[in-house]
Design a protein around this nucleic acid. Structure first.
Lengths: 191, 191
DNA sequence: TTCCGTACTAGAATGACATTCTAGTCCGAG
DNA sequence: CTCGGACTAGAATGTCATTCTAGTACGGAA
């Protein structure tokens, strides 16, 4: 219960002011827990953020897996993945800003966590399988799994970064289309 | 002079231990300057990092502009840009880790600086012109300038992030080829 | 030469935090 | 009832970034 109250309060604080700017004192005020209590439940401030970030990662992997399952055609799957991701970002920009921060600060730590969470591991395995299946069937180019991430998510992350900073010139829907077509070209077989 | 000593020392510290982990005390020890002196020359710790980061940004824009000038063919320019960027990263991974951190923490601030630095502004104008010229000539697809960044640099950044964390499966040269061909597909005219 | 102002240096003092410590309180099993 | 472990509390610490106060060096005006 206390644990949950702390997590809820911390989430609110992180979304409102960002990770660095929220102090343990803020979390204490909002949650009603004492300092000692907070440190009883969590090793440190970062551990709280990681726990919260995990929820974002779950949603992320769920979204990816759902999109890839949504059609027989890889091309349509990619389009859906891109559109859904951007829709989600538009709905929860603060969450995305927080998640971006978490992914980049101590990115390594985040990776380790990916690997340790059974749900994420399962989704991840499914996604890897999906790519291997389609590549073997000759529907997309064959390459190491990390390059799928690079070619597909790279543009998406970069657009998201621009949009979250309010400096993107291309509206979301249009960007989604451009990325979908570009990404598909990159994955298509044949030079 | 003092100013330069402080910058040199700070750079060494940042590359060795990262931005967050280096204290003013560290910089003081390595540079020989006093705390007061450091704060006389710089508003705060972040200002030092930004000044250093600016040097990275100059190199970055120089590299981009040089690559785009290297050939009549956009395709070859992209290949060169990708290869050169990765070569640079391989040579100075610590610098890249630092730059990544700077771009993501207070990314907005970094943007503002881009816009204010005359050298960067000039390079940036050149790059924008390059894309407009080639788009008008029908050699690449026409789109808003930010999407060029998204489609071209997005994958590159994502690969760099993986590589810097030591979790990339694809060796640099191979990745460069895959990205170059993928990116070119995305930019090529016609569906 | 002397005097003044500006640029710079120094290091102590401050204040904001994260984190640790010490001392309880609560509650369920035996 | 009572013992032990889980939990809570809030004061105490320690580490920084940053600010303050007091110089020092030096170039140029008088």
């Amino acid at each position: 219960m206390r644990r949950q109250q702390i997590l809820d309060a911390a989430l609110q604080c992180f979304l409102r002011s960002g990770y660095e700017a929220t102090t343990i004192e803020d979390v204490r005020n909002l949650s009603g827990a004492s300092v000692g209590s907070i440190y009883h439940h969590f090793a440190d401030k970062h551990a709280i953020a990681i726990e919260i970030h995990r929820a974002y990662l779950h949603q992320y992997w769920r979204l990816v897996a759902a999109a890839l399952s949504s059609s027989r055609s890889p091309r349509l799957c990619f389009s859906k993945l891109i559109a859904d991701y951007l829709k989600w970002m538009k709905k929860s920009p603060d969450l995305f800003r927080f998640a971006r921060f978490m992914s980049h600060s101590r990115g390594l730590r985040a990776e380790v966590i990916d690997a340790k969470d059974p749900f994420i591991e399962e989704q991840s395995r499914f996604v890897v399988g999906w790519f291997e299946r389609h590549a073997s069937a000759g529907r997309i180019k064959k390459m190491q799994i990390d390059m799928y991430d690079v070619l597909l998510m790279g543009p998406l992350y970069e657009y998201a970064a621009h949009w979250l900073q309010g400096i993107s010139l291309t509206p979301i829907d249009e960007a989604a289309e451009i990325m979908a077509s570009g990404v598909w070209m990159a994955f298509r077989k044949g030079t």
